[in-house]
Amino acid sequence: MRYAMAIDTKKCVGCSDCVVACQTENNVPEGFCRDWVTESVSGTYPQVEIELRSERCNHCEDAPCVRCCPTGASQIVDGGIVIVEHDECIGCGACIESCPYDARYVHPEGYVDKCTFCLHRVTEGLQPACVSVCPTKCMYFGDIDDPNSEISNMLKTRKQKTLAPEAGTNPHIFYLV
């Protein structure tokens, strides 16, 4: 079992519904977010391209945040999901500095918080909130160890990329391009 997410940049319109749904699902405090949308523009008028990406924790295989955590609060649980055990977190911020994706923030209550792939939903057989609301259905979440899963099929058939591959973290958010 290895959870991952594939996001189709050809379909994403950058509406940010994923961001709002995450906030209401996970009680993310005002002024913070666990996921966000970026836009890259390339080319010169009129030969211009845009890539829209919904970004979040990459749930890396070789996660620097987990490695550098002094208390073990940052950890990898079943399915490869990287989580922060709030009670064990001392809010030192080492993980924030080590993350190549800037995916973490310090919650006003003092611990570090980030995307959990909506572990509480996934364990009940639901999709993460961001995936479940997306109007364009551009996000695919599932088990890449299962060769017949929808996400495995998407990754088999579509051109893809990951962010910051040079960081060598083996990220598990894939962008279909």
């Binding site: 519904d17 109007p135 259905k137």
Partner: peptide, 21 residues
Amino acid sequence: KIIGNDDDPHCNGRLCPRGTG
């Protein structure tokens, strides 16, 4: 939270950011 109604032809269970917000 506010979640789209699966049976609705206007949203098919998926609201937009404004609806979610």
